[in-house]
Design a binder for these strands. Sequence first.
RNA 1: CAGGGUGUAGCUCAGCUUGGUAGAGCGUCUGGUUUGGGUCCAGAAGGCCGCAGGUUCAAAUCCUGUCACCCUGACCA
Length: 635
Amino acid sequence: MASLRPVVTSVRNGVQHRWSSTLIPTTREAPNDAEVPSHVLLHRAGFIRQVGAGIYDYLPLGHRVINKVAAIVREEMDAAGATEMLMPALEPFELFEGTKRDEAYGDNLFRLKDRKGRLNALAPTHEEVITQLMVGSLTSYKQLPLNIYQIQTKFRDEARPRAGLLRCREFLMKDAYSFHLTVEGPGGLNDTYDAMYRAYTNIFTRCGLDFSAVEAESGPIGGSASHEFMVNCASGEDTVLKCPASGYAANVEKCEIGVRPAPSKGYFVGEPSGALEEVHTPGCPGIDDVCVFMKVKPQHMLKSVLFRATGTPEETAKFGHEYILAVVRGDHDVNEGKVKALSGCTSIAMADPAEAIAKGFAIGFVSPRAAVGKKGVLLLVDRDAATAVDDASGKAKFWVTGGDKKDHHVKHFNWQRDLGKDPLAAGHEGANAGGLRGGDAAMMVGDVRNALAGDPSPRAAGATLVTGRGIEVGHIFKLGTKYSQAMGLSVLTPQQKKETVIMGCYGIGVSRTMAACVEMSHDEFGIVWPVALAPYHVLIVLMKHDDARQREATARLADGLSAAGVDVLIDDRDERPGVKFKDADLIGIPLRITIGDKALEQGGVEYKSRRDTGKGEVIALDAIVEKCVTTLNAK
RNA sequence: CAGGGUGUAGCUCAGCUUGGUAGAGCGUCUGGUUUGGGUCCAGAAGGCCGCAGGUUCAAAUCCUGUCACCCUGACCA
């Protein structure tokens, strides 16, 4: 039985797989609930199948792509000094209670009871688990810094899974956690954060993706600084803003706005555009409804959004206000992070409508006047809303805003005449000491809206921001001590003092990266994989699967390619040529070699790149391996 | 969570308004034909009409409930 003895080799060959021996269920039509290109194409090309809402099978082709992404991630993480481990997806629920993330995540956290009735969670991410592990493992500064990662399935009970692999309830993620004694200096958090930034740049570059690194909010994970890595793609669900002059880039939640020139006459100063007039606007609580009903443009409306301070009673008392009313122009969006920053209140949420109505706010019809004469209401006015003169036309600014009673709006609102107090009054006290106009301590002017294309850049004078769309595939955070503090992770310093460990965390959506790549790189015929992520490098299309000469040429070619480290898929199906070519375009392997009588008569085979149109070129059999390797390496 | 939509063959869908024993195309299987961009012909298999209840002599069809999935928003390391 010598022939059955396993052959052990250290030579790294590419694989040779046969279409007829694997599962590649291509379809002519996609299921009707697939809408985005990546979902349609990954389904049609036989990479994925839906199992439930936000839950997918990764078929052999899909799995190979996932593994290629993961391999690149591993190489770059390892090269950056991180080491891999594996944590469980199933965790005792108490872990999340300890850090209050059961509340922070809310319904997004999968909960399940075991047979003993104990509550467990399916992990959406692993800060608690790894911090607990470190509490039992780290004792000395000598063990730091440390950067540990894993590639593992994550669970999030998304309110609305959508867009195929782009927003799933179960997905594959690489998450890394780093531990430090200091932020600055050698071995500090900043060192590792920068190393991860470089590693991520390497990873997504090697994947062949067109991406941007942008400044971001850190979200419920908490922490101080954060960057998102976004695949640039018109169909992306996130908006990013960039300054072409300085290279500054940020997502819309984070993006600062440069200096916006103040109105020529000053904030709030100017004559009314007409007599204040009440308009009956039945059933029109929204800006869009009112604009249609009253035939005004959104930029002539004042939008007032009510927030409530949600800190502890002590925190709210210290803050001094219970509600915050943010006013922006009707065509602008309130930015919650900027409301927090300007107000100085760190925990706020949209006010509960019922509660707000009970407090006298006519939700849906609120104007800035609603903040006047009530106790504990801070009024924040965006710079673009705090004007009374339209500098472009030189005329009085025409404002429509809420009537502060149900189903009514007012027009010709003027800040000085109609606010109910003098917005120019002196007395800049406390939180309002920023020097901007804004009446008393309960009123401020500043930046509380999302940045838009055309806004001044915050990093380069004279430059304006441009917008693009992106798909988030990576996110790095400086966590600080949020988890180490809560869970008691500390080490002894050289001075023999206990010091709380400083942490960072670094995520990559592995399965989402596959989908983002398809979103970015496809055409009307199918997927166009970059070489690095393609499930196979070369597809050999065997025209006559039972022709001896063609089979022999195919075998020789496949051996040559795989020996050179090239992954080969052989389409050996008994199908008509048209079917095979259509499927070849659909699954998007970078290089296609057709073996048929036509080219063989000339002693060659037909060679075609997926990106090229047309029929391809005939290459001599003894030159084709080198041609493929050269082309693949050049990409 | 709010609003909207869809559940009929592996996939795309028709049939439902007006109740009468289940249809097409694609795919699959068989035989023939064809053989370089989703051939052509003939035949076959394949359905708890999402599930439960109700109305009726009779329900894919009407009514009630329920579940699932999708879209828009809210939400979202």
